[in-house]
């Protein structure tokens, strides 16, 4: 992501976070109000600063790129500037958004199911199903077998460690 875009979206996020808290602090009075009020002001003002900074940077980048790309010998310099404007990690590693979406959906579904189905059954299902989607499909043994080989012992170890040895309560649900 370009730095100008980063700054712009960071600014928007800061404003939204500040506003989410800001709409609630009308209910507060006296000393309870002062501390959050200062913080919300800092966050929103910072957000506005980054939105403006992002927009200005974006305008300058476009202007600079246009002026440099107008002459062919300057194209290389223009590419260098573009590279400098991007975050290094993006260049090094590409991101699989589909995989992130899959794990996010299953992780959220797991939270919903914890209280209704029970921690251990839900977690077993989560590991197996997620692995079917995210596991390495190039290996010979089937995904289901590999996921079960890992998931069943793992869940049993977690159960022994947390429930039997450390007596940590887990959401029970209708199953286990």
């Amino acid at each position: 992501m370009r730095k100008s875009k980063q700054d712009f979206w960071a600014g928007i996020s800061f404003i939204l976070i500040g506003a989410a808290f800001g709409v609630q602090y009308d209910e507060l009075t006296g000393v309870s109000r002062i501390f959050p009020e200062i913080l919300i002001s800092i966050i929103i003002l910072g957000g506005i600063y980054f939105v403006i900074k992002g927009l200005v940077q974006n305008y300058l980048e476009k202007k600079l790129t246009q002026s440099l790309s107008s002459s062919p010998q300057e194209t290389k310099k223009s590419d260098e500037i573009k590279e400098n404007c991007c975050v290094a990690e993006d260049a090094v590693e590409s991101i699989s958004w589909s995989r992130i979406l899959i794990i996010s959906i299953f992780a959220v579904l797991l939270v919903f199911s914890l209280e209704y189905i029970g921690f251990f059954v839900s977690s077993l299902a989560f590991v197996v199903i997620s692995y079917l989607f995210l596991g390495d499909k190039s290996l010979q043994r089937s995904l289901l077998v590999r996921s079960l080989i890992f998931a069943v012992p793992f869940i049993i170890i977690v159960w022994i460690l947390f429930v039997k040895l450390l007596h940590v309560p887990t959401p029970a649900g209708i199953l286990f």
Partner: peptide, 15 residues
Amino acid sequence: QLTYIALSIVVLSYI
């Protein structure tokens, strides 16, 4: 494998 570790982290984080 990374996928195993990532899924284990989710389960351990929740518990």
